[in-house]
């Protein structure tokens, strides 16, 4: 109950805080979720993607 009260008092009470929490939360989740999936995908496909073999072909920049 303490958590619910704190949650309500800090976030839900003022609509401006509530809405911006949702927006920032969605943004942060989007980035975090993408990073997580990409990390899994890159590990699953280790050595197969272009970024894994690019260093062999790119000349000194």
């Amino acid at each position: 109950m303490a958590f619910a009260n704190t949650f309500y008092n800090t976030i839900v009470k003022r609509n401006s805080v509530f809405v911006s929490t949702i927006f920032v939360g969605a943004f942060a989740f989007g980035i975090g979720f993408d990073m997580g999936v990409t990390a899994f995908y890159d590990r699953w496909n280790q050595g197969k993607q272009w970024k894994d073999i690019r260093h062999k072909y790119v000349e000194a920049e």
Binding site: W44, N45, K48, Q49, W50, D52, I53
Partner: peptide, 13 residues
């Protein structure tokens, strides 16, 4: 194929 699975990319080499 190296890209057959649900999670598999093409083998770019």
């Amino acid at each position: 194929w190296s890209h057959k699975g649900l999670f598999d990319t093409f083998d770019h080499a």
